[in-house]
Design a protein around this nucleic acid. Structure first.
Length: 282
DNA sequence: ACGGCGGGGCGTCACCAATC
DNA sequence: GATTGGTGACGCCCCGCCGT
């Protein structure tokens, strides 16, 4: 549950130890800043920049390895779907908005007001529920996008949708309302409620691009952009780690193969030596 | 049972290269 | 020039293992 972790990890500014040797990039930056005072540092910084020059991504390296070694699966170059959106969500309808809950589930708001809730990792339609908002109307002008949800005081998780309504994830013991798809097993259930008097903390209502006037709206837009960037970077980091693990596994398997090959070649060499230089009796 | 330690995973920041 | 995606590095938390 990343809400919990999120609050714990990022509630305060990150303290950086710039004297640490681990921050090579920052050391370079400092060195470059000092270059104006020290002419000798120019070449040093250039050298260090060359050393620290960007390496190819894991995807490229792994694909190169895969082309050499048959049987090693390649990583697909392009995702066919919108980033971060499970394929089975996009395939079900043409949603106008897709949101992700704090539990990693996806909520897609379709044109007609239908809401689809899906669980990533579940196989296809099984994890997807479709429901229709009974009193969904046109979104209020100037507030068409909702960024993410927050945890309310009663422990439920809320998700704001166009039309000034709230999708609330029930607690496990709570029963699903009649207008929603039946929850099966331990599948979480959701309710559509009228929002509380005020938006809970952490919820950002974004305005339409043309309607940004006041500094408050600009600040809200900046906050929304920041949250979006963090969310994307979160997913990118996950994907990057997954690729890194796959890359390491690929290298390990390649090492194993090469070790076997090396052993065979050594044995072959010994055999050829015996053949070509028979022992002479003295 | 308890505390220390190491590994793994996560979110975030900073930076860079590619793309728009 | 701005935006976007990939990735190294950092700090944090969680969990299992081990010694006491």
């Amino acid at each position: 549950m990343w809400w919990h972790r999120h609050n714990l990890c990022s509630s305060r500014p990150v303290e950086r130890d710039y004297s640490s040797g681990g921050l090579q990039k920052k050391v370079v930056a400092v060195a470059e800043a000092d270059d104006s005072a020290e002419s000798e540092g120019v070449t040093d910084s250039q050298k260090r920049r060359e050393i620290l020059s960007r390496r190819p991504s894991y995807r490229k390296i792994l694909n190169e390895l895969s082309s050499d070694v048959p049987g090693v699966p390649k990583i697909e170059e392009e995702k066919s779907e919108e980033e971060g959106v499970p394929p089975h969500v996009a395939a079900m309808a043409v949603p106008t908005s897709i949101y992700q809950t704090s539990t990693g589930q996806y909520i897609a708001i379709a044109q007609g007001g239908a809401i689809q809730i899906s669980t990533p990792g579940s196989d296809g339609v099984q994890g997807l529920q479709a429901l229709t908002m009974t009193n969904s109307g046109a979104p209020p002008p100037g507030a068409t996008i909702v960024q993410y949800a927050a945890q309310s005081a009663d422990g439920t998780q809320q998700f704001f949708v166009p039309g000034s309504q709230v999708v609330v994830q029930d607690e496990e013991t709570e029963l699903a309302p009649s207008h929603m798809a039946a929850a099966t097993g331990d599948m979480p259930t959701y309710q559509i409620r009228a929002p509380a008097t005020a938006l809970p903390q952490g919820v950002v209502m974004a305005a339409s691009p043309g309607s940004l006037h006041s500094p408050q709206q600009l600040a809200e837009e900046a906050t929304r952009k920041r949250e979006l960037r963090l969310m994307k970077n979160r997913e990118a980091a996950k994907e990057c780690r997954r690729r890194k693990k796959e890359y390491v596994k690929c290298l390990e398997s390649r090492v194993a193969v090469l070790e076997v090959q090396n052993k065979k070649l050594i044995e072959e060499l010994e055999t050829l030596k015996d053949i070509c230089s028979p022992k002479t009796d003295v």
